[in-house]
């Protein structure tokens, strides 16, 4: 019965959705707003990657809101799964396999290095704070899976995450104080395609990288520690 109702609902949805979608043909040029971003990007922001300058400068306030959603989801998860400390430690865990343990010891620093490379070069290559932070969190997932002797404290991850969030807001407020609006790019733009260029974009993206990495690592840590 449920399945029939679900299929009828999906058929109605499909019928309603075909008409608007048939007006946006695949592969044609539909750019309106982004024309300004694409043509003025080099003179206004100095970043080689247009996506990065849209995320950090043109829609920077929106990105601040999205980072806040991430923060609230992490807080909600930690408060839903809250357990008193003493119940956690009396579990005996199974030993992980040799391959996973060796891979964890060898790969963890390299994964951190790769994630840092991704978010430092966010304004030049495909990548940035969100992607680099997710890569760093995958390294921490490896730690939580096998190298249990390297204890990662979720409190310290929370401190790193709060400092990174405050850096984002502080850089935006400096722009407000010096030039008149939030997230003004007050640093020099430099030459295109150099590492130190594009004003405040690398600063903010490094902050976002730290924030997303520590936030997702904290989520993994809470799920591992408090659900046994």
């Amino acid at each position: 019965m449920r399945k029939i109702i679900a299929l009828i609902f999906l058929a109605i949805l499909l019928w309603g959705i075909t008409k608007p979608v048939s007006r946006i043909p695949f592969g044609t040029n539909k750019i309106k707003v982004a024309e300004h971003y694409i043509t003025k990007d080099i003179t206004e922001t100095g970043a080689a990657n247009v996506v990065t300058s849209v995320v950090v400068l043109y829609r920077g306030f929106d990105t601040l809101g999205e980072v806040t959603i991430l923060f609230i989801a992490a807080i909600g998860l930690a408060s839903i799964l809250y357990l008193p400390r003493k119940k956690v430690s009396d579990e005996v865990l199974e030993e992980s396999s040799l391959i996973l343990r060796t891979g964890c010891r060898f790969l963890f620093p390299l994964i951190l290095l790769f994630g840092a490379y991704i978010f430092v070069h966010g304004h030049l290559t495909p990548g940035g704070g969100f992607q680099g932070g997710a890569i760093i969190a995958s390294g921490f997932a490896l730690i939580f899976l096998s190298c249990r002797e390297r204890v990662v404290s979720t409190v310290k991850l929370g401190v790193v995450e709060s400092l990174a969030g405050m850096t984002f807001v502080a850089v935006g407020l400096i722009g407000l104080a010096t030039g008149g609006y939030f997230l003004l790019s007050f640093l020099p733009k430099g030459t295109l395609n150099m590492l130190f260029s594009a004003g405040i974009i690398p600063v903010i993206y490094v902050a976002i990288g730290f924030k997303v990495g520590s936030e997702l690592a904290g989520i993994i840590g809470n799920l591992m520690e408090r659900t046994q």
Binding site: V51, R59, E66, A73, G128, F130, L216, L223
Partner: peptide
């Protein structure tokens, strides 16, 4: 060039999707 705005939206939506999925799993 292709349109950069959907890419910028999806870039943040993927990470938020992971966090919201973890929240649902904790419930």
């Amino acid at each position: 060039m292709v349109d950069p705005i959907p890419q910028a939206l999806v870039l943040t939506a993927i990470v938020i999707g992971v966090a919201v999925l973890a929240l649902a799993l904790s419930l």
